[in-house]
Simulated scan of single mutants.
Amino acid sequence: MVLDSKKIEYERCDIASSEDDKKKMRELMGDAKALPPQLFNGDQYLGEYTAFEAAVENGELEKFLKLE
Rank of each mutant, 00 (worst) to 15 (best):
Q44L: 09
G30L: 05
E9P: 04
L67Q: 07
E11F: 00
D4V: 15
K7T: 07
D21W: 05
L67A: 04
K66L: 14
Y49G: 09
M25N: 08
M1H: 12
N58I: 08
K23D: 07
D31E: 12
E53Y: 06
D43V: 00
Q44G: 01
A54L: 13
K7W: 03
E27L: 15
D21T: 08
L61R: 02
Q44H: 04
A54W: 06
R12N: 10
K22H: 06
G59W: 07
K23W: 04
L65V: 04
A16G: 15
D21M: 05
D21K: 12
Y10E: 01
Y45Q: 04
P36N: 05
K7Y: 02
A54T: 11
K63V: 15
A54I: 09
K24Y: 00
F40N: 00
I8P: 08
M1N: 14
K66V: 14
E19R: 15
E57V: 15
K33A: 12
E27Y: 11
P37S: 08
I8A: 02
G47Q: 04
A51W: 01
S5C: 05
D31Y: 06
K24C: 01
C13N: 11
K22E: 10
L61S: 06
F64Y: 13
E68S: 12
K22G: 14
K33N: 13
E60L: 15
F52T: 03
A55V: 08
K66G: 09
Q44C: 02
